[in-house]
Amino acid sequence: MAGPIEQQIHRDPALFYWILLPITVVMILTGILRHYLSTLLQTTPKKQALLKMREQRHLMRARNMIINHAQISKAAFNKRKEWFADKVKEGTLLESGPDGKAKGKPNPLSDPAMMDGMMGMMKGQMVMMVPQSLIMGWINAFFSGYVIMKLPFPLTPQFKQMLQAGVGTRDLDVRWVSSLSWYFLTLFGLQPVYNFILGSNNAASQVAQQMQMQQQGNPMAGAEDMEKIFAAEVENLEVVEHWYVLDGVEDRLLAKFASSI
């Protein structure tokens, strides 16, 4: 009866020295290579034109106002809010000036700033994916067709397909895996090691890859109508329920130091 009977396969210890160790070393080295490659491939940020910078920074100031409104008094906040609303209505803060208001969204493919953003993203993804596919191909070429070790824990049968890729038998326990599974294990497990060697800001860890997917939204936003964004900020400013950090500060302070007076 197959199944509950413990399947024992005796393996040559030399397997470890010739397979596991080389794969591990290659993984570590490619991780480091990926990190340095992505650092070198980073383009220097381009200088911005004066008006574009002005537009962006006024927007940032409006956002600061919403976040930090508590630092200034209600009257001061209202004064700034009205100033901003007036300026947005006139349209003088926009890059194209008050006349360019009706231009609308620029075409994503023709806007040069967007192209740079997309190139940067694609480069990042290439650096991630190319080494991975290369290594998978190398492993499949050299190390396939046999099981190499037994996992200490069981997995569902679906994994058999992936982890026992080249093996001919069908009844083999899922715990016996081929070298491809060692590749996957190291892919996930070496991240802390990368953190150790390269410092925590490295480009080799998986998490960074996932965050790049999230940042996809960012360069796309540049194409939207700046006018609408400004109008949205004016509305956000209107909605703010102002509270003042100095309100009750003396009571808080006295409560904090009550013991030491």
Binding site: K74, A75, A76, K79, Y244, L246, L254
Partner: peptide, 15 residues
């Protein structure tokens, strides 16, 4: 509400 000096009531003598 005064644009320069803010608008909170003056603090109590005790505090």
């Amino acid at each position: 509400s005064d644009p320069v000096f803010g608008e909170l009531a003056p603090p109590s003598l005790a505090s």
